[in-house]
C-alpha cells in the first residue's frame, strides 16, 4: 500500500474499479457539484476532479477536492502543467496532501488557446512525464524537484492518462511504459469509442506486462445525442469516434437510449479484456446517469475495502 486511498485499496483488492468525474463550475457556487457527488457516491470508488478542463477557468480542483473530503468522499485531483510552474505545482501538492487528498492524476492539459483565456501565457515549465517523476521523487525520495528535502514525508497515489487513439500508435505503448516508470500506479485512458483499436493497444500492453505494473482503467463517455458525438469527433482533441458508431446513433430512434447502450456495452467488453483493471466514467453534463450505467454494467454494489 502506498497512500491507502480507497482507489488504491479497490485496485489492490482485484475488483474492477470504477471512477467518476466531476467538473467544477465557472463560478464558486459548487452546490451542483456536491449534488452530483452525492448522486453517484454509492456507485464510484473515487471522483476525478478536473483542473480547468479545456483551459476554461473554473473553481480549482483542490478546492473542490477539499469539499469532497468534508463530505466523506474521495477525490482524484487532476494537475495539469499548463497553468503552473514547478514551484506552484509542488506547493499545491503539499496543500492538497495537508487537506487529506490522496490521489493525484498528472496530465499536460489542453492548450490554453482552446479555452476562455486564449491570450494567457501557457506555463509548460515541466511536462506530464516530468511531473509524474517529480511527484514520485517527492514521495519516495523525500525531495523536491530542485533537490531540496521536504521537512516531513508525504504520500499519495499517482496516476496518469494515456490516449491509445493518438498518434503515432506504436509509440503509445512505449509512452505508457515510460509513464509507469516515471511513477504512475494507475492509468486512465482517453474516452474509448473505437474498441478495436483499444484492444489492439491492450494486446501490446499485455505483451510487455504493463498491466501488471499499473492499473489500466478504460475511459468511457455516454453520448447524449448525435450532435454531441459529431462535436466530439470533430472538435475534441485526442478523441476518435468511428463512423459505424455515428451511423448506429443516426439509425436509432432514441439517441439518448442508444448512447447509453453503447456506453454500457463498452464497459461490459472492457471487463472481459485481460489486463483492464477498471473503468473511468466521464459523464460531464450527464452526471445523474452514472448510477444507471454502473448498475447495468454489473458493477454495483461497489466493494467495501
Amino acid at each position: 500500500m502506498i497512500a491507502g486511498s480507497n482507489l488504491e485499496k479497490v485496485i489492490n483488492s482485484g475488483n474492477f474499479v470504477v471512477t467518476g468525474e466531476l467538473g467544477p463550475p465557472k463560478s464558486s457556487e459548487i452546490t451542483q457539484l456536491k449534488h452530483h457527488a452525492e448522486e453517484m457516491k454509492n456507485h464510484v470508488d473515487a471522483y476525478n476532479i478536473t483542473d480547468n478542463q479545456t483551459a476554461i477557468v473554473r473553481t480549482s480542483s483542490i478546492a473542490c477536492g477539499s469539499t469532497l473530503i468534508q463530505m466523506g468522499l474521495e477525490p482524484i485531483i487532476q494537475i495539469t502543467v499548463r497553468d503552473r510552474n514547478r514551484i506552484c505545482i509542488q506547493s499545491d501538492v503539499l496543500g492538497a496532501h495537508a487537506l487529506g487528498m490522496k490521489n493525484i492524476l498528472c496530465l499536460a492539459g489542453d492548450h490554453q488557446s482552446f479555452g476562455n483565456e486564449p491570450g494567457s501565457k501557457g506555463v509548460y515549465d515541466i511536462d506530464s512525464m516530468q511531473l509524474l517523476k517529480g511527484l514520485k521523487d517527492m514521495r519516495d525520495e523525500n525531495r523536491f524537484m530542485g533537490g531540496d528535502e521536504l521537512e516531513a514525508p508525504i504520500s499519495y497515489y499517482l496516476g496518469a492518462v494515456e490516449n491509445p487513439f493518438a498518434d503515432p500508435f506504436e509509440y503509445r505503448v512505449d509512452r505508457l511504459e515510460k509513464k509507469i516508470n516515471a511513477g504512475a500506479s494507475f492509468i486512465q485512458t482517453q474516452c474509448i469509442f473505437d474498441l478495436d483499436r483499444f484492444e489492439k493497444w491492450m494486446e501490446l500492453v499485455r505483451e510487455r506486462g504493463l498491466h501488471k505494473k499499473a492499473a489500466i482503467m478504460g475511459g468511457v463517455t455516454p453520448i447524449k445525442s448525435l450532435g454531441a458525438a459529431r462535436y466530439m469527433k470533430n472538435n475534441v482533441s485526442g478523441i476518435t469516434i468511428p463512423d459505424e458508431l455515428i451511423d448506429r446513433l443516426k439509425g436509432a430512434e432514441k439517441k439518448k437510449v442508444e448512447g447509453l447502450n453503447i456506453c454500457i456495452e463498452t464497459i461490459q467488453r472492457l471487463q472481459e479484456i485481460e489486463g483492464v483493471a477498471g473503468v473511468h466514467i466521464m459523464a460531464i453534463a450527464w452526471e445523474e446517469i452514472v448510477p444507471e450505467i454502473v448498475e447495468r454494467s454489473g458493477l454495483y454494489p461497489r466493494p467495501k475495502v
Binding site: R82, A108, D127, V161, A166, Y171, K178, Q190, G238
Partner: peptide
C-alpha cells in the same frame, strides 16, 4: 507545449 517527453495525447 514545449514537451521534452512527447508526444502528448493530442
Amino acid at each position: 507545449k514545449s514537451i521534452l517527453n512527447g508526444p502528448c495525447g493530442g
